[in-house]
Simulated scan of single mutants.
Amino acid sequence: MNPRLRIPLAVVGFVSLVAVATSAIGSAAGPARRTASAGTPGAVSLVPGPHLIARSLAHDSRDHLVSVAANDPRGSRTVSTTSCARLYASAGTGICLRLDGGLRTFEAVVLGPDLGRRRALPLVGVPNRAQVSPSGRMVAWTVFVTGDSYNGGRFSTRVGILDTRTGDLVSTLEDWSVRVDDRPYEAADLNFWGVTFTRDDGHFYATMSTAGRRYLVHGDLATHTLRTVRENVECPSLSPDGTRLAFKSAVDGDPRHGWRLSVLNLTTDTVTPLAETRSVDDQATWIDARTVAYAVARGRGHADVWQVPADGSGVPTLAIPDADSPAALAPPEASEEKPAA
């Protein structure tokens, strides 16, 4: 057990936190550059197929889940009635982080293939990241929280993981056993975010910060253990074949300088910087075995989804205008390699 004291946030502080997030997530600040139409209302499905989903940021369909063709993502879009602050989907399962009605708090909602609500869990914090395992069984989320005694009132992060088959819930990783450089490690300032699952549903990668450092960690759901893999890796995203991780890293190790997208080969331990040189503060997603997609902010409250080859070649191209939270609904490619150990 980590020797820390988590002091609950005062109500007024949490209301302020929600107000800030609602402003950033759910409202536009000034006129938007209309690069995409709002789309056509219709039924959006999470059934695996040649489509991408995303959260629309277009003026007339803001926050709504939209579907576009994978081979023409800038083309017409179908707009659902479902709204999210952050979303992800895989194998017919979706996770939608959103405001809980008029309560001005947030919830994590597990969605079925037809976007029907399967389960909802309250979130004590502001949505930041969402993820679903390749099988659709495991879902995870990251929220911002304040009020931790060690952190002087600044934002902290907290991860939740739900097994949709058994109902088992991991409400925090902060009481798990941690090994740094293969040595037992305990600290009061552990923070975790950005989960990505392996194909066996029993393991995952995530980011851990402590003592001013950021680590890629590997987690074991059966033993509740975490071990560090590498420094300066944030928001990892595992490739369909399980051999590579797309991630962002702080430029010069300092987030104030922005983030650079790269890919880590888990077999050779080599890092390939991608052709995207703008600062990308997002958890990239693999839209196929060769391409990653991610959101690039465009002024307050606006962003576009871009894509770039995962081997460092090519140039970034605009994929889905006025959108964020992209996810591919196509099943993994048939020629899968065995996941790295």
Rank of each mutant, 00 (worst) to 15 (best):
A70T: 14
T172I: 08
S27A: 15
A319L: 13
D311P: 05
A36V: 09
V217D: 00
V132D: 07
A32S: 15
R4G: 10
P31D: 09
P331N: 08
D175A: 06
G136L: 05
V68E: 00
A69E: 05
A246P: 02
S279K: 09
P113T: 10
D281R: 11
P41I: 10
R98A: 13
G194N: 09
P122K: 12
T272M: 05
S135Y: 06
V296E: 15
T172C: 02
E231S: 12
R6E: 04
V68Y: 00
R244E: 12
M208F: 01
P41V: 09
R74V: 15
P48G: 11
T317V: 06
Q131W: 07
A297D: 00
L226R: 10
R244A: 05
L329A: 07
P321I: 03
M138L: 13
P326A: 07
R62C: 05
T78Q: 10
L221N: 11
T78P: 06
V178H: 04
G102P: 02
R4H: 13
S83G: 11
T78I: 13
G13D: 01
S249M: 08
K248V: 15
Y88K: 09
V233P: 00
R290P: 01
L329V: 11
A54P: 10
N232S: 09
S16V: 14
E337V: 09
R230W: 01
W141M: 01
V271G: 02
D175L: 05
T285D: 01
S67N: 05
L261F: 00
A211Y: 05
T228S: 14
P3H: 14
P41N: 08
S135N: 12
G153N: 11
S313P: 06
A58S: 13
T78L: 14
F197L: 07
A91R: 02
H302I: 03
P273Q: 06
V178L: 14
A341I: 14
P50N: 13
F144L: 08
R179V: 01
D168Y: 11
